[in-house]
Design a protein around this nucleic acid. Structure first.
Lengths: 186, 186
DNA sequence: GTCTATAATTCGATAGAC
DNA sequence: GTCTATCGAATTATAGAC
């Protein structure tokens, strides 16, 4: 065994972070209280402060989201939109951090910054692989964001039927072409 | 003169409602405090309670939004998407209530209900005018919502450049076709 | 009709015992 | 490393004077 025994504190840190992600995702920044997060993690509220300093820093730690973007250059060009969309739909459900960012991002500037950074650092580079004109990359990445975040908002956050109830396949069929156009169209 | 002299209370009611709309739009439900709304309206916080009972009812009164949808049957079919989009972009800026609904709707169920009602009662009927198959109306209206709300989110709320900085004309050029497809495509 | 005063909570954050 | 106890600030909401 080369691994060291995890200190008690590491377990607690992880429990806090997990509970924080769930609460921020479900309730947004303001309504997710440190007291509730601590209760979910089964520890005292003061421990949250001890480990993360304050609520703002706790959110910063919990809101670290990796979209794990697929390599859009590795699929046929005409399937880029559908590939991106299918990936996003499943990734959001694996990791609820995206919902925490959206629920917080509409009123919290730090969360909005994170969302902007995700577009710029994770989405835009993949768009750049497909886009002939480098000057168009930021616009196209932003347009992809309008459709992707709009779908997330209507399907998972505000839950507007039938968008919230349709199958993943139907969602890809309906919305995929819009992304395809933002990625490669015109 | 057939008009009656407006009672002082009517002026106050209107001032409260206007201030509430601004605050809810700028800060969301939780951060928009009754104290701040009263200060903006130039009256005492207790007056807000007297006129509207509680914060929840005040929001319900302030969040009444009429999209004033254009008659999409009155324009050439190929211009339906662009017409709808241009109208929405200007309407949102005339009346900031839409932003109040979005900022609140991600964490407040009453606000989310309002958003769903706007799609069902205001957007869907116009979609129905264009859509041959009545069974597709709810889906198409929901898809229109994903793109419209996603654009509002990225352009005005989270402010993702260059989507937040591009001209109305550019926004219509880029996003119009996506709406056109949701309204009439396939 | 308007405001003063305050009740009743709830929250983030801190101090310090063990 | 963990918890008890509590502070100080902010909030919604109410009671009642004028």
């Amino acid at each position: 065994m080369t691994s060291v025994k995890p200190r008690r504190s590491d377990t607690t840190r992880a429990a806090i972070l997990g509970a924080a992600r769930e609460r921020f995702a479900a309730d947004g920044y303001d309504r997710a209280t440190i007291r509730a997060i601590a209760a979910d993690a089964g520890i005292d509220p003061s421990m949250v402060m001890r480990y993360y300093g304050n609520k703002e820093k706790l959110f910063a730690a919990a809101a670290d989201f990796d979209l794990r973007m697929p390599d859009l250059a590795a699929v046929p060009r005409e399937e880029a939109g559908a590939t991106l969309l299918r990936h996003a739909l499943t990734r959001w459900q694996d990791d609820e951090t995206m919902f925490a960012l959206m629920r917080a991002g509409v009123t919290n500037e730090a969360a909005a910054d994170r969302l902007r950074a995700i577009i710029a650092d994770q989405v835009a580079p993949e768009v750049a692989k497909l886009c002939a004109d480098p000057a168009q990359v930021p616009v196209r990445a932003g347009l992809v964001a309008t459709q992707l975040l709009g779908l997330a908002l209507c399907r998972f956050v505000v839950r507007i039927p039938p968008v919230s109830t349709m199958s993943t396949d139907d969602a890809v069929r309906w919305v995929g072409p819009a992304l395809q156009r933002y990625l490669l169209g015109d």
